[in-house]
Amino acid sequence: MEKQNKIALVTGGSRGLGKNAAIKIAKKGIDVIVTYQSKKEEAEKTVEEIKQLGVNAAALQLDVSDSSTFDHFITEVKTTLKSTFQADQLDFLVNNAGIGIHASFAETTEEQFDSLVNIHFKGPFFLTQKALSIINNGGAIINISSGLARFSLPGYAAYGAMKGAMETLTKYQAKELGAKGIRVNIIAPGAIETDFGGGVVRDNEQMNAGIASQTALGRVGLPDDIGGVVAFLCTEEARWINAQRIEISGGMFL
C-alpha cells in the first residue's frame, strides 16, 4: 500500500497569504484542502496549481465569521477526506482566513468590532475546537497574528487586540493539546504587499516607503516571505517548536 500523504487544511487559502502558504505546503509533499468565502473560481485555480505540484487538493466554501456553519463544514471536510484523499483525518490546520478593517479607536463601530471578533477570534477558536475530532495525534495547528499585536499603529486597535487574543489562545491550545502530541504555534507577519485591507500597504507609496524605512531589511514584506514559514511548521523538522510566536517582518520597529 502506498504511503498516505499528510493533509493540511488552510482557511482563506484561495488568495494572498493563504494561497502562498497552501502552495508552499504542497511543495513539501503535503495534500491541501483550501477554503474560500465567495471566490470559488479563484479557489479552483489554486487547487489546479497545487495539483500540478504532484499532490492532491480540494476547495471547500467556508464563512469563518459564522460559527453556526462549522458543524456542517466539518461534515463536508470528512466527506472530502474520504472521497478525494481516501483518509479520515487531517494533520495540519492553518487558521489563515482574515480581513483588515482600518478605523481609529474613537471611530470603530460595534459592527466593525463584531466582524473582527467573529473572523479573527471566535471563528478560529470554535473552528479549531470542532476540527479536533479530525486532527491526527502528532499534528499541528498554525494560527495567524500580526506585528500589530506587538507594536501599535493608529487605526488597528480592534484588529491588533484580536490578534493579541489569538497569541494568548495559542499558548492555552498548546498546553491542552500537548497530550495528543499536537503542536500549536502562531506566526505574526509584518506589513505585506497583498490586497489585504484594500491593498493599502501595496498601493500607498508613502506608506510603503515609511514601513520599509522602519524595517531592518529595508523593504516591505511579500506573501512569498511568509508562506514558507507556515509550510516549515508543518514538517518534521519543526516538531519541537511549540507555543511560539514567530514574527516574520524583516525586523520591523526594532
Rank of each mutant, 00 (worst) to 15 (best):
Q37F: 09
E237N: 07
Y159Q: 10
D195Y: 04
D66E: 13
G198N: 07
P124Y: 00
I119D: 01
K180C: 07
L17A: 01
K27R: 13
E110N: 14
E49K: 13
S115K: 15
E247F: 12
M207L: 15
K78P: 02
G12P: 06
M166E: 02
G139R: 01
I99D: 09
K130V: 04
R150F: 15
G251E: 08
K3D: 08
F121W: 08
Q173H: 05
S213Q: 08
L233H: 02
I134K: 02
I23G: 00
I241V: 15
Q129L: 06
F92H: 05
G181N: 12
F196A: 09
D88A: 12
S115C: 12
D224A: 15
M166D: 04
V230D: 00
I182F: 03
E107G: 11
Q52P: 03
N56E: 13
L153V: 11
P189N: 05
T46Y: 03
E236W: 06
I30A: 07
D91Q: 11
F73L: 11
M252D: 04
E167C: 05
F125E: 06
I144D: 00
A216K: 07
S104P: 04
E41R: 07
S67L: 09
C234R: 11
T170M: 05
P124K: 03
T235Y: 05
G251S: 07
E236Y: 09
S152T: 13
I246G: 00
I101F: 04
A158E: 00
A58W: 02
F125P: 04
D225W: 01
I141Q: 04
